[in-house]
Design a protein around this nucleic acid. Structure first.
Lengths: 227, 227
DNA sequence: AAAAAAAAATACAATTTTTCATATTTAATG
DNA sequence: CATTAAATATGAAAAATTGTATTTTTTTTT
């Protein structure tokens, strides 16, 4: 049983503030709200996309699976957030995978219910457009990072993302592995490990197990800019 | 003077088919329709985003500028298409640049006019959501290509994109340079040139100046999959 | 709590890709 | 139409990054 009820999430979170009571009721009737254990797959790239996903508790990642079993993490998502909104409207299959990083509560909403709401609630539709646009900005950052930066710049981007967008704190305490940091930066696990201890040694970050503290953000920003 | 009038474009193209006559009129009154010469900048990454852009004639590219003056091409756009839709809603500055590849006609619509239409025309808003979702799919492909493929896979992806999504023909006749192909694939110009003659030599493509013909698409797909 | 598995750490070898240098061809400009 | 600039082409050297191997540490499972 999820810690918080779906009813409560729908009432309290700004993600749903533009919905009418009927629309919220419709979501409750046409969705499941489940506990996922750490590491479980929420949705699988290539599988039929029948649901719109919301994370209501825990921590999750969306990622792209390469044919060479190298994954690339797109987003680390805290509650309450849509997971991979972009992939479900106008698409029959998920074009990404998602999995939990820690034990999490996940709400799966019937796709058609979501589409019906979009087609009748223009304010909500505009909110979703805004969300998709902000997503796009993140994609642009990602593409810039992967496409015209090398090791150090990419790695700095990943740390800055974790600190500024996910943890929202210089102390990154998310229980993510070095492997996942590598997959987020688009570099090998070994390189991620190497760079972590390098920056730790230089006093730019502080390492304490899985907890990473950013000490000199300005230098990371510099690294990101140099590329 | 653009070859085709904006009035005609608005009447005839499916991009605008969901707009009312008043909304079309509003666009006509709140936009400019201009001829751009080959190579001109349409919008500049970082500049204030006051317009929604439509290409009505010619050929254009959107690209991300790296700090090391390496560019990365996101899209090659034929008429009639939105240019960088994702960047203007909820954003104050363009997060990409766009430029013409050949002489082109460009329509610049006042941002507020566009937003007003979105807030009053739900069907149109839903069409835009669909467009943004399809854009996202393209971004995912791009990120996969850059993030977990190497030289050959990336290059194959670029050729397949040009053939299937832009030219919509095995014969790629777009007057784009080797440098631009490199920027589209995220590889150096020299590598792009080398791979072109390599594939030409192997009979997978045929080169004739700037015209590239794909002879064995299945092998390119294979290269793309291998990574 | 012990055993097994996964994650982290580090050095070195191997690979991939770019950059540099230079020549030739094609396109743009006055 | 001559001149300049840009684009194409190719080889060799240099740089960047990954992969392999091995050890230690941490986490998970029994």
């Amino acid at each position: 049983m999820p810690k918080v009820s779906l009813e409560q999430v729908l009432e309290e979170h700004k993600l749903f503030s533009l919905l009418t009571q009927e629309e919220k009721q419709s979501i409750i009737e046409n969705s499941t709200h489940l506990l996922y254990k750490k590491g479980e797959t929420i949705c699988k790239q290539g599988a039929f996309a029948n649901h719109i996903i919301v994370i209501t508790d825990g921590l999750a990642k969306t990622y792209l699976e390469g044919s060479n079993d190298k994954n690339l993490i797109i987003d680390i998502l805290k509650p309450v957030n849509w997971i991979g909104l972009s992939s479900v409207y106008n698409e029959t299959t998920y074009n990404f995978s998602a999995a939990t990083i820690i034990d999490s509560s996940i709400c799966l909403i019937e796709k058609q219910t979501f589409i019906d709401i979009l087609s009748q609630n223009n304010e909500f539709a505009n909110q979703i457009i805004g969300k998709l646009c902000r997503n796009s900005k993140h994609f642009f950052n990602k593409i810039t990072s992967l496409g015209n930066k090398q090791l150090h710049g990419r790695f700095a981007d990943a740390l800055l993302y974790l600190s500024n967008k996910v943890a929202k704190n210089p102390v990154i305490e998310l229980s993510i592995t070095r492997k996942e940091i590598g997959e987020l930066a688009g570099i090998s696990t070994e390189s991620a490990i190497r760079l972590l201890s390098e920056l730790n040694h230089d006093g730019i970050i502080k390492l304490d197990g899985k907890v990473i503290t950013i000490l000199k953000e300005n230098l990371l920003v510099k690294l990101s800019q140099i590329g």
